Simulated scan of single mutants.
Amino acid sequence: MKSGLELKFAGGKPVMTEGSVIEGYASRFGLADQGGDVVTRGAFAASLKRVAGRGDKVRMLWQHDPTRPIGVWDEIREDETGLWVRGRLLPDVGLAREAATLIEAGAIDGLSIGYRTLRAHKDDRGRRLLTEVELWEVSLVTFPMLPEAKLGRKGRDDEPEHDELAAALVAATEALRG
């Protein structure tokens, strides 16, 4: 890959709200993706702070193509689960209208991060633990790398049963992986 850019896919179904608003998890902490990488809690914090300090934004791209921006991410933050994003597909961009149609039909349901690894190490199972990354972009993609990173409406703090269910599903997935 050019310039050290790495790509990570996190699948699921984005939720379309208010016409062109999408939200979900672009990355989930503590789960090994199909390439054996695990993003650790806090891996994005310094990068998000630097981006905000510059008054810049992480880009929203279509399939990691830098010539095909389709919207803007209005909110990106780490929470206890992973890297949560909310953004808008721009209706004046033809490809964004196509993306909205594909999302609504369920044909596209994944998010993927484009980043450069700043700090990582191997654990005793041979997995690469990403402890600090420089986040460049979050793309809408066809094929997710991390199927457990389901996208959808972010649960509110007054709905703890959603967090408990999500935690139970993640624990079950890890138990099945052995």
Rank of each mutant, 00 (worst) to 15 (best):
A32F: 05
V38A: 03
R116S: 09
I108E: 03
G35L: 14
L111C: 13
R156S: 15
K49R: 13
R41K: 14
G114T: 03
G106C: 05
G24Y: 04
I103Y: 00
R41E: 14
T17A: 06
V38C: 03
P69C: 07
R119K: 13
G24S: 10
G35Q: 15
L102A: 08
L151R: 11
E132W: 07
L169G: 02
A175T: 14
L151P: 04
A96H: 11
A171P: 09
R88E: 11
E23T: 04
V51L: 06
A172L: 15
L83F: 11
A32D: 02
V51K: 05
R116W: 00
E80S: 08
A105H: 13
R41M: 07
I76Y: 03
A100N: 09
G71S: 11
G110D: 06
V72E: 11
R127E: 02
G4I: 07
L111K: 08
M60N: 10
R88K: 10
I113E: 05
M60D: 07
R86P: 02
G12H: 08
H64R: 14
V38E: 00
D157Y: 08
V85F: 04
R97G: 01
P69F: 06
L102Q: 10
E164T: 13
M16K: 02
A149C: 13
G152A: 00
D163I: 01
F44R: 01
E137L: 11
I103V: 07
L165G: 00
T17N: 03
D37P: 07
G114S: 11
H64E: 12
G53A: 15
